[in-house]
């Protein structure tokens, strides 16, 4: 079965799993019918938890999903679906209160039954989860602390909601609902156990050693690693991995970085990391011989899965890292298909891989179009941002048959994607990776 067919099957399964508990509500025998708002409230409750519960899956880095769907899409999906799920779940009590204001007494934690207390606490936890996730940086919460709290609150809230549902026991009395929600709880728990226990154990068995840390232009550092006592990971050019350094794989301090080395070099892997604060600032302090862990490989941002007569790479700043990996791999494979690389940077001094790109142009069919926001005085190249005009000027007549890979911050990806659509590039030929996913 092709990857596309598998992806479609997973999407169909997702829709089915989400709709199942709501569709099953139609399935009798039923308790006696109640007023409209109360029934609508119950249905929203089921719909909300179905969406919220499934959130344990996309972030568990399950290999069979990561192989089919880009990880940043899985995360974007997680963010959007969680908010949608919470909104539906919140509509459940709100409709209940609106339909029958007497039910407001359930909010009084001192006198309310435990099934109501559990729901109220779960809603408070969900609100805290959303606030700390959406505004983590504004609230200055450290990434690893946020991850720990996010995990703990999510598990607690899911448990409390399940307790609430089983204790209310209205539509939950139906055997389908009991089996569905019990099975769901087991699946959610397995996803958490996989990412928090199984995966770290696997990483401990496959350590890497730091070979060197080399400074690059644009406040970036290239970290070279060699597998320690195992064959290493065979990544595809353009993929990324989560890096764990100076801590245990069981900690919450792992960070995703793209490989910058050639996928043909099996014995040594390299990451190029821009210094942005938090973990990235410690990369330069790593010493040769130090032990690190690499959770990978992930991502579908690679040319092997998207055969084309030629490629267009578009990067903003450090988004060039996976593209360098693709270019170096093509060079090592003596792949002579033409590549045009549009590379946007603030200024000439900060262009990471400037020299590497110069030498790559002589080793393969590569044309690099530098686009600078603040060009030096004698600059003859492109200036400003990567726009439809700049793309149009450099792309050939066969442009609709080529594949396009864009990596950079989200606003840059959106702008370039729009520009490509303006130039009649088919949507299916555009591949994106944003580096601010989690």
């Amino acid at each position: 079965m092709s990857d596309l067919a598998k992806a479609k099957l997973w999407i169909a399964l997702f829709v089915l799993v989400i709709l199942a508990p709501v569709l099953a509500l139609f399935w009798g025998p039923h308790p006696e019918g109640r007023e409209f708002w109360r029934e609508l409230s119950a249905a929203y409750g089921f719909a909300g938890l179905a969406l919220i519960g499934i959130q344990f899956i996309p972030t568990a880095r399950l290999p069979f999903l990561a192989q089919l769907f880009p990880m940043d899409t899985l995360y974007a999906f997680h963010h959007k679906i969680s908010i949608a799920g919470f909104t539906l779940a919140l509509a459940h009590p709100l409709l209940l209160f609106a339909g029958n204001p007497y039910t407001l007494r359930l909010l009084n934690l001192a006198t309310a039954p435990w099934r109501a207390r559990a729901a109220v606490i779960a809603v408070i936890l969900f609100i805290l989860i959303i606030i700390t996730s959406v505004w983590r940086k504004d609230l200055r919460i450290r990434y690893e602390n946020w991850r720990a709290v996010h995990d703990l609150f999510s598990i607690a809230a899911a448990g409390l909601v399940l307790y609430h549902m089983f204790m209310v026991n209205h539509y939950m009395a139906h055997p389908f609902q009991r089996v569905y929600w019990s099975t769901s709880a087991v699946v959610w728990a397995l996803a958490v156990i996989y990412i928090r226990v199984v995966r770290p154990i696997q990483l401990l068995q496959r350590p890497y050693r730091v070979v060197s840390v080399q400074a690059e232009r644009g406040e970036a550092w290239t970290l070279s690693l060699e597998p320690d006592g195992h064959p290493g990971c065979h990544f595809m050019a353009g993929q990324f991995a989560w890096l764990v350094a100076r801590t245990s794989p069981f900690s919450f301090r792992d960070n995703p970085f793209s490989f910058s080395s050639s996928a043909e070099n099996k014995n040594r892997i390299e990451f190029t990391i821009k210094e942005l604060g938090d973990f990235t600032a410690t990369v330069k302090e790593l010493q040769a011989g130090e032990r690190v862990y690499v959770d990978g490989c992930y991502g579908t941002f690679d040319i092997d899965q998207h055969d084309a007569p030629g490629y267009v790479m578009i990067a903003g700043g450090i988004g060039s890292v996976p593209i360098l990996s693709i270019l170096r791999t093509m060079r090592d494979r003596k792949d002579n298909r033409p590549v045009i690389f549009f590379y946007g940077n603030p200024d000439w001094e900060q262009v990471t891989f400037r020299k590497d790109l110069d030498s790559l142009t002589s080793q393969m069919d590569l044309k690099v179009v530098h686009v600078l926001e603040q060009p030096p005085d004698n600059w003859r190249g492109e200036t400003g941002f990567i726009t439809a005009e700049i793309l149009d000027k450099h792309l050939g007549v066969d442009r609709a048959n080529w594949h396009y890979f864009i990596c950079g911050p989200i606003p840059m990806i959106s702008a370039v994607e729009k520009a490509l659509l303006q130039l009649d590039i088919p949507l299916v030929k555009i591949h994106t990776e944003n580096y601010e996913m989690a």
Partner: peptide, 30 residues
């Protein structure tokens, strides 16, 4: 590209959920 697909899937899924929930509530309350 993937974001557009993800957004469409979200709209369809949530739309169906809202629709079925509404239908259910009508059927049960009449």
């Amino acid at each position: 590209m993937q974001d557009i697909y993800a957004r469409n899937l979200l709209i369809i899924t949530v739309g169906l959920l809202l629709l079925f929930a509404f239908l259910f509530a009508i059927l049960r309350s009449i």
